[in-house]
Amino acid sequence: MTRYFIDTFDGMLDVRDGIGTEFASYDRACAEARRAVRDMIRDYTDDGGSRPISVSVRNRDGKTVYALRLDLSESFDRDD
């Protein structure tokens, strides 16, 4: 088991993981980070403008060992 720290940012709320979680492997930690992004996208609501959704995994030494970033951009050309 290895402890990893997963930080997330959705353009609004920046959450830095100060506690960490024990994962069976590096790959499991990356999978959890991907699921977090999927969940954040699912909750994405139109609030105008563009924003990044990002997640990163840090190890015990504070080194970023995995990162995933999605840049959302919505375009509107209203015709109603």
Binding site: T8, V15, T21, E32, A36, D39, M40
Partner: peptide, 20 residues
């Protein structure tokens, strides 16, 4: 992590939502 298994979400997102 158990709450995450109840709501079908990642523990990371559950933590974010609790903070919100």
């Amino acid at each position: 992590a158990e709450l995450a298994d109840v709501v079908g979400l990642s523990a990371v997102h559950v933590n974010r939502t609790l903070q919100e």
